[in-house]
C-alpha cells in the first residue's frame, strides 16, 4: 500500500532538500571554502548571520510592500537559503539574489506580478538584473519549485482539534492557532525547514504555544497500534528546540555588510550580477 507518508517521501522537498543535522552543517559551510582566501573574506558564521538577516528582515519587508501572502514568504525564504547552500555571499551579493527569490517565489505560489511593477517599487533594481539571475536561481534549486511549509498542516490540526479536544472551547483554539501561525511564519528562516517535515513543524509550534493542549491532542489522536506516541513526542521535542531563531542584532549585521562591500571593492569584482555563472 502506498501511504501518504510514502507520497511525502516522493516529494522533491524530501528527496533533495531534507538533511540530517550534520549534512546541513556541511552544506552551509561548503560554499565558504570554495572562495579563494582573502584577508577580508567572511567567516562561515558571519555569512550565516548575514543570510539569516536578509532572509528574515528583508524578505519580510519586500513581501509586506507587495502584500504577498505568507506562502510566498515561506517559499522565497526557502529559495534564498537553498541558493546560499550552493554559493557564497562573496560570489553573489544577497541584495540582488533576494528580490529574485521573492519574484520567483511569487510566480511559484501563483501570486504573479509583472517584472516592471516589481522593479518600479524597489529601489536600485533593474528588470534585467533579476531576469538574468532567475534562471541561475532555478538551476541552483535543481528545478524544484515546490516548497511545503507548516501552515497548511497547522490549518488541518486546527480543524481536527475542534473534534478531538472537547475540553477546549473554540475561541481558545482559535487563539492557539493564531499564535502558532505567527510562530511558524517566524520559523521560515530556521533550519527546521530542512531537518523536519511540515507536520512536525506545525505540531512543534502548537507545542510551543500551548503544551497542554498539544500533548493532550497528540495523545488522543495519534496513539494507535501503528503509531508510537513516544517516538513522535521526542521527534517534536527535537524540532521545537530549533524552532525559534535568534536573529543577529542591527550592529552586527552592519559590520558584516561593511566588510562584505569592502571585500567586493578589494577583489575588484564589479558586482554580483556581471559575474560569470559557475558551472557545476
Amino acid at each position: 500500500m502506498v501511504t501518504d507518508a510514502d507520497l511525502y517521501r516522493r516529494s522533491s522537498q524530501y528527496q533533495k532538500w531534507s538533511f540530517t543535522k550534520d549534512q546541513l552543517a556541511e552544506l552551509l559551510a561548503k560554499p565558504n571554502r570554495n572562495v579563494p582566501p582573502h584577508e577580508l573574506a567572511l567567516t562561515v558564521q558571519e555569512e550565516q548571520q548575514l543570510i539569516l538577516y536578509y532572509a528574515a528582515e528583508q524578505v519580510k519587508s519586500v513581501c509586506q510592500q507587495f502584500k504577498l501572502p505568507s506562502q510566498v514568504r515561506a517559499t522565497a525564504i526557502s529559495f534564498f537559503r537553498k541558493f546560499y547552500m550552493r554559493y557564497s555571499v562573496m560570489e553573489y551579493h544577497p541584495k540582488l539574489i533576494l528580490p529574485t527569490c521573492v519574484f520567483f517565489a511569487a510566480k511559484a505560489e501563483n501570486a504573479f506580478m509583472s517584472i516592471t511593477t516589481f522593479c518600479d517599487s524597489l529601489a536600485k533594481t533593474e528588470p534585467s538584473q533579476i531576469l538574468d539571475l532567475e534562471f541561475l536561481l532555478f538551476k541552483t534549486l535543481e528545478f524544484t519549485a515546490t516548497v511545503h511549509n507548516g501552515l497548511r498542516p497547522l490549518h488541518g490540526f486546527f480543524l481536527d482539534m475542534q473534534t478531538v479536544l472537547d475540553t477546549f472551547d473554540r475561541t481558545e483554539l482559535c487563539s492557539i492557532h493564531d499564535k502558532a501561525k505567527s510562530l511558524i511564519v517566524d520559523s521560515f528562516v530556521s533550519d527546521v525547514c530542512f531537518l523536519y517535515t511540515p507536520t512536525q513543524i506545525a505540531l512543534a509550534a502548537l507545542m510551543e504555544v500551548n503544551e497542554l493542549a498539544a500533548t493532550q491532542y497528540m495523545a488522543q489522536s495519534m496513539d494507535g497500534p501503528n503509531t508510537s506516541l513516544d517516538r513522535l513526542l521526542t521527534l517534536i521535542h527535537g524540532c521545537r528546540q530549533q524552532l525559534v531563531v535568534n536573529l543577529p542584532s542591527q550592529e552586527e549585521v552592519k559590520g558584516i555588510s561593511k566588510k562584505l562591500s569592502r571585500y567586493y571593492k578589494d577583489t575588484g569584482s564589479e558586482g554580483p550580477a556581471t559575474k560569470k555563472q559557475r558551472t557545476n
Binding site: A5, Y8, T20, K21, G156, T197, T227
Partner: peptide, 20 residues
Amino acid sequence: QQEALKLAFMSLEVDIQTEK
C-alpha cells in the same frame, strides 16, 4: 478541509534525521 487534514497527517511519520 479534507485536503488540509490529509496534509496535516501526511508527513507525521517521516523521520528525516534517521532516514537520511
